[in-house]
Amino acid sequence: MPGGRLTQQERQRIAAGLTDGLSYAEIARRLGRPTSTVSREVTRNGGPGDYRPRSAHRATVQRARRGAPADPLDGTPDGTPGGTVDDRIVELAVRSGMPRMMARVHVDLLLSEDGRRTAADLVRRLKVSPASVSVAVNSLVEHGYVRRERDPLRRRDVYVVDDEAWYHSVAISARQTLGSARAAQEAAETLGPGSPVGQRLLKAGTFLERVVGDMQESADRWRTLLR
């Protein structure tokens, strides 16, 4: 696996991967680099919608010449993310599998006073393109982390995160996992529950079904804590 600073060619490959809609993990795999290296590179240099490989390379060279201190996102000695509260929460969300732009939008909403932002607010605050914000908020709405409201006076959408969003995100995740469980069980029946593949799928489907049931029951029981 290569080490050291990214080369200009690698930055061009990162830009091409972003254009093709690849995840940070996939871009990193193709480069033979850690995912964190790619995510930090893009975050430092405009985000997925505004990443420019030549500008990023020049900025890195200039930082090296100035002897700039380590980036706060590189983390602390115990492995926890460094930087501001926003940075730390975003890094933890990315490590758990959330795309970085989606995490940045979500955290900005979470830390806002009233939990409300327009798309224009997010573009201005995060300094990214409207297209990047649009993709991120659509994913957040789809997964239940954020809801969309319409401002009738200004004829624009407002994105809102509130306490109930946590319940809805769990419920949506549970439904999606339950769908996978049912698909595995149906496939097991088709292939024959006595066959090796059928047994494997039936066990997996049953396991997921039980876990989802427990998760949904727990979410329903503790939902009052969010009210």
Rank of each mutant, 00 (worst) to 15 (best):
E209W: 10
S134E: 14
D151V: 04
R117N: 09
R200Y: 03
E91G: 07
E186A: 02
A68P: 14
F207M: 11
E209H: 15
A25C: 02
D50P: 08
V133S: 04
D74W: 09
P193V: 03
A15D: 08
D71Q: 03
S39I: 00
V161I: 13
A56Q: 11
E41P: 11
E189A: 02
G97V: 02
E10F: 12
E10S: 05
E26V: 08
L31T: 04
A93H: 11
V85F: 06
R156T: 14
W222A: 00
G144I: 12
D151S: 05
S195N: 02
G47H: 12
D108W: 00
L122I: 02
D114N: 08
H143M: 10
M102W: 00
D74E: 15
L6E: 01
P196Y: 07
A171G: 03
V94T: 12
G82S: 07
A171I: 12
A120T: 04
M1Y: 11
L191G: 03
R100N: 10
D220Y: 12
R148G: 06
L18D: 10
E26N: 01
D163R: 15
V90S: 10
S134V: 01
R44Q: 13
L111T: 15
R182M: 04
R5D: 06
V38W: 03
P72D: 12
H106C: 06
R221Y: 09
D50A: 07
D163L: 07
V61A: 14
R104H: 05
R154P: 00
P81K: 11
V135K: 13
D86T: 14
P2C: 04
R44N: 15
D157G: 08
Q185N: 09
M101Y: 04
V105T: 06
D78V: 11
G17W: 02
G32D: 14
E149I: 05
R11C: 13
D108L: 01
Y51I: 01
L225T: 14
A165M: 06
E189T: 07
R117Y: 05
S169Y: 07
V128I: 14
S134D: 14
P130R: 10
S139V: 01
G198M: 05
A68V: 06
E189C: 04
R148V: 06
P2Q: 12
R44C: 10
Q199K: 15
R44P: 01
V137D: 07
S180E: 11
L226K: 04
G32I: 14
Y167S: 10
G115F: 14
D108P: 06
D74H: 13
E189P: 00
M102C: 08
V38Y: 03
T177P: 05
A136H: 11
P48N: 02
S218K: 08
E26L: 11
D121F: 04
Q216K: 10
M215R: 06
L31S: 01
D121I: 00
A188G: 00
L140V: 09
Y145F: 13
Y167M: 00
I172M: 10
P196G: 13
D214H: 08
D108M: 01
R5N: 03
R52M: 03
S218H: 12
R44L: 13
I89P: 07
